[in-house]
Design a protein around this nucleic acid. Structure first.
Lengths: 216, 216, 216, 216
DNA sequence: AATGAATGAGCTTTCATTCAT
DNA sequence: CATGAATGAAAGCTCATTCAT
């Protein structure tokens, strides 16, 4: 079922509830290993060893290996997609749409950049595993269609009406914006994290590109 | 080591050498299953069953499961990245750079679109598995840095000099173009293949976006 | 590397550490089957069945089938070769070389006879597998050259000096003694265990043979 | 069934019948590999590869892998044990028992030494595999009990009667002689072939040892 | 809460053998 | 005679999960 905001926020809060130290070690070990080798190629015994706990301990906290994966991916998925429009951040920025579309884009890109910077192993796992797990895809689809897309659409409509952006179907516009945004973050943190990046400048360039393209 | 064009072309030709019928069935079954569930979650017994051969038959043709994966991924990787600038296609289009940058972009996007349209399960496997296999990443890196990036760079320089595109570091420009291009193809075939797409129009829009952005 | 006595004794002690009952059953089944059919022709599933445990249980205690073999052979090898001159037995008998060479021979042959009598399946495995495993050969070579041969040599020198045995290169003398000794034990327990043997008498005869040969 | 001399001789002759070149290559490859790794650890594909023939070719000449083993071991077994008393050699030497027992022993040891020198991989396979194959043991038992032991016994009786050797049960005497003889050959060719050996001298010493022992 | 021995299904790979060419 | 693709049973080993302690 589609989950409403309150439910999603609850998920986040549950995820940050008190954990035993062992549980924290398990999660840390699982994240590291899932990110590196993928869920399917990671064995619970490897996680246990890396976490310094007994094999059985993992199953005391997570009924199955899959549940362990979900307990990692679900919160990231929510945090990754949601805060753009909901939450503290959204309230401040989006409800009172800034006049300047560029300014808004920059705030979004900066905000998501910061988030991925802090959480790239988690984001990596999310992206990798969404390819294989239908339930994760569905989860994502729900959050996206319910909480992200409509607001994005509304936003596009607004700036169109203000005559600040060109006539273009919303889905196309959204795709292009997200593609550029995620394209930057993905290249920055996943494809070529070892290159020397001038992050501020590159974000500005990306915003400029979204606004004006390459042509002179 | 970096492979030169002749070697890469040889890889492609080897892949199309005479195969026993059983071998073809195996490849077909492997592609289907790897695309759907991922390499790590696909068992050789499953492939054998789907291909209608004995499990031993797989290992008569491919020493290991990994070799089977590589025999699928390596040719796609070459075909996916290379033809953009090398080969028949490149010779006609890129060597005699069209005056119009837009026209060029359109030809590229169209050409890659057609390729992925014909081969999306293969492309999907390539993308999915590159996340987990260092050797695939390295293989890609070599082909890209040796055969794709330099020509792209040359092309950017050319249009800059002709004063058709803005001042921007080549890596950034290349990233933005590729991001938009791949973003379209990825959305079209992987993320939302079930949406109704007006492909021609969407490719035009994408080219427009790369050229002029969203702002009015 | 050559192992010193303390290390070898440690190997023996480790082998007798606390084992789970299942582990004991596994070892028993493995010894029986290896002795009968040889290591290479024994499957882990057969061992598991005979031991009444799941196949996985074997690999919980021994990382590989080879490790299971080594955990059986290494201690026998040490016990088989070492005690002749080291250990409790050696201290009593060899350090205070008996005047009578015959008496000494008899004590050795008797002592080794008793050992093999108690452990012939183990000895059998050791001999059989040394033929195929270079590492076992090397292990044996080290123990023999470091701990057995030198003392044997010293002993030969002693009795030569006392004018009790004939002039003969030590290696030849040692070979003849060991050949006769092992020849008896091997015939007794491996080649023809079903014959009726008067063991005491036969050991005496063997000692007589080593001393005086067959000629009248 | 016990085989009489004629049958055994026939086995030898059959073994030397005309073979195709491929068959010879197969046998050569099989002997090399069986000697090194043992029958059970040698795969037919490995033999085929080493012989430079197709896998199927082996089974054209030998119905099963076991038959290939037997075609190697049976002739060696006959040649190894039989010629001592039967055959050309035996006729010359044993039928007309030399007065000197020493001389006889020397002739035997020399003759068997030469044989093993020419055939040690074969002898090695025979010894190794007799440990695991009941049928080989039985084959050996038959040849030995029928053709070797009785003549040996007769020989012992003769020299006893001539008062040249001591009073001793024949089985014990035979065991001691064979033990010393085989002990030398085994040490020389299997255990320590890399040592520097003065073969002539060592055979003399061995005969001396059998006759007079070590005591002064 | 934590352990780790035990499980048995399932994995990839090897193998002796067959058979159409 | 010779080949080598094909087989399917069986090999060694791994795995997620359970449960008595």
């Amino acid at each position: 079922m589609t989950k409403d905001l309150n439910e999603l926020i609850q998920i986040l809060e549950e995820g940050e509830q008190k954990k035993t130290p062992k549980q924290t070690q398990i999660l840390k070990a699982a994240v590291e290993t899932f990110a590196e080798k993928g869920y399917a190629s990671t064995s619970t015994s490897e996680i246990a060893a890396k976490a310094g706990v007994a094999e059985g301990t993992i199953f005391r906290h997570y009924k199955t290996k899959k549940e362990l994966l979900l307990s990692i991916v679900t919160p990231v998925m929510v945090k990754f997609t949601l805060p753009v429009f909901a939450s503290h951040f959204a309230e401040q920025v989006f409800e009172q749409l800034p006049q300047d579309f560029e300014e808004l884009l920059y705030k979004i890109i900066k905000n998501r950049y910061e988030f991925v910077k802090e959480n790239h192993p988690l984001v990596r796992i999310m992206l990798q595993e969404m390819a294989f797990h239908k339930d994760l895809q569905e989860q994502f689809r729900l959050v996206f269609l319910e909480h992200v897309y409509p607001r994005f659409e509304h936003l596009i409509a607004h700036y169109k009406q203000e005559d600040r952006i060109i006539e273009l179907p919303a889905p196309s516009a959204i795709r292009m914006i997200m593609t550029s945004l995620i394209g930057f973050i993905f290249t920055r943190f996943i494809i070529a994290p070892d290159l020397e990046w001038d992050d501020e400048k590159e974000m500005e360039r990306t915003v400029q590109f979204i606004m004006h393209g390459l042509s002179k």
